[in-house]
Amino acid sequence: MQRLLVVDDDADLRETLAHRLSHEGFVVEVARDGAEALAKLASGRSPTAIVLDLGMPTMSGWQFRDLQKRNPALAEIPVVVMTGEAPLGIDVQHVLQKPFAIDHLVETIRRITVRS
């Protein structure tokens, strides 16, 4: 079973995504910002993919992604960014502009994790 880490500071969106992705067959863990996501990744259970918001307090998605890429144990985990703004120059597998259809997110995750 594929494991996902959903990282977003919007509690409603985070829980909605977790619920819908769980119904699609994924095991979903959530984090409210980049710092919490890094702490969860440090527990040793790496997800198949990360669904990441960029604009978050404490540690933004940009900061999280920079630290993730610097850690060899985490660098290869594919990332799907979801954002309301056009993120120029971020190195991820896919960017989804908010609002997006959950079906599109599911399709994207399945496509990028097949290659992983």
Rank of each mutant, 00 (worst) to 15 (best):
residue 19 H to S: 10
residue 98 K to H: 10
residue 115 R to L: 09
residue 34 G to R: 03
residue 18 A to D: 07
residue 102 I to H: 12
residue 53 D to I: 05
residue 27 V to M: 07
residue 4 L to S: 09
residue 9 D to A: 01
residue 7 V to D: 05
residue 68 Q to S: 06
residue 111 R to H: 04
residue 95 V to I: 14
residue 60 S to G: 06
residue 62 W to S: 07
residue 11 A to I: 12
residue 40 K to G: 14
residue 75 A to K: 11
residue 70 R to K: 15
residue 42 A to R: 13
residue 82 M to A: 09
residue 20 R to Y: 14
residue 75 A to F: 01
residue 105 L to R: 08
residue 49 A to N: 04
residue 74 L to N: 01
residue 80 V to S: 06
residue 104 H to L: 14
residue 60 S to E: 05
residue 110 R to V: 02
residue 100 F to D: 03
residue 72 P to R: 00
residue 13 L to E: 09
residue 19 H to E: 14
residue 26 F to H: 02
residue 107 E to L: 04
residue 20 R to H: 11
residue 30 V to K: 03
residue 49 A to V: 03
residue 67 L to C: 02
residue 39 A to E: 15
residue 43 S to R: 15
residue 5 L to A: 05
residue 107 E to I: 00
residue 45 R to T: 11
residue 3 R to Q: 14
residue 90 I to R: 02
residue 42 A to D: 15
residue 27 V to E: 13
residue 86 A to E: 13
residue 67 L to D: 03
residue 108 T to Y: 01
residue 32 R to M: 10
residue 63 Q to N: 08
residue 18 A to F: 08
residue 29 E to G: 01
residue 9 D to R: 04
residue 82 M to K: 00
residue 36 E to L: 11
residue 25 G to H: 05
residue 98 K to Q: 06
residue 68 Q to V: 02
residue 75 A to V: 02
residue 35 A to E: 15
residue 13 L to D: 02
residue 85 E to M: 12
residue 72 P to D: 00
residue 69 K to Q: 05
residue 68 Q to K: 11
residue 114 V to M: 06
residue 59 M to N: 05
residue 45 R to L: 12
residue 42 A to W: 07
